[in-house]
Design a protein around this nucleic acid. Structure first.
Lengths: 131, 131
DNA sequence: GCTTGACCTAGAGTCGGCTCTAGATTCTAC
DNA sequence: GTAGAATCTAGAGCCGACTCTAGGTCAAGC
């Protein structure tokens, strides 16, 4: 039980094997993945954890180039914590902005949903809006 | 004051004139934009309002094809309100899911930010986390 | 009357992020 | 030992959403 194949990691992370190789090529892993005798990738838990972080960063809209930049900082080792922090803070601001924006969109959509529901008589108590 | 040029609409909406033409080609407007003598587009307030809705839908991740579908329903006129409602409800679900996801991402990021802040001594009271 | 700038169309190009293909090798199960 | 599945690399292809280009029309100001 000393490592996972790319297929197993794909299953765990939800990424495709194609994407896993692609991410590696793109420099999204701090260390190159260990290889077995035949050249097959062998992932360890640390790799999987890191990929989990990458997935979260992607899911929150961080572009691959920024993830790579952050990865490079981590790869470079201690001493650049301030830079890492900056990358993360900037991203957090963007995420917060995105959440605010989503909130506004949500209220528009919710408003429209309510409007159509009332128009279709799906609501007993129609809110005061133009019919 | 009977209408706006494409340039004025670009300025108001924040979309580029290219994008405005592109959206029209893609069928994102319920009616084709009115044209002046020289074939220039003349937008009215209704067009701008509709574009505002499109922008919100896009900003919340709705793909152009879905916006087009919704637009087609609106264009088709009364009688398909149930379908419109369905489109909107589905999208709302996706938005809510996206918000939940963003929330998770945010807590990861915030956690990491706190970690680096404490590592850099930017915090007086370090939360109980692995140093 | 001529330049400048906003507009027009059709279509090509770009960019990010995957996704797939081809052709070869290797592991697994029988 | 052999069939079938998984892996490898290099590189091409695809998709969504713009973004830009070329070549042309038109109106207004100088």
């Amino acid at each position: 039980m000393s490592g996972l194949s790319i297929g197993q990691v794909a299953e765990r992370t939800g990424l495709s094997v194609h994407t896993l190789r692609f991410y590696e090529r793109e420099g999204l892993l701090p260390q190159p993945v260990r290889r077995g005798a035949a050249g097959h990738r062998i992932y360890d838990e640390g790799d999987v954890d890191w990929l989990g972080v990458c997935i979260r960063l992607r899911a929150s809209g961080m572009p691959l180039t920024d993830i790579r930049r952050y990865t490079e900082l981590v790869r470079a080792g201690q001493g650049n914590e301030a830079e890492r922090l900056e990358v993360l803070r900037e991203h957090r601001e963007r995420v917060l902005a995105q959440m605010r924006e989503l909130d506004e969109c949500l209220s528009l959509i919710t408003h429209k949903v309510a409007l159509y529901e009332s128009r279709l008589g799906l609501r007993d108590h129609v809110p005061d809006c133009t019919p």
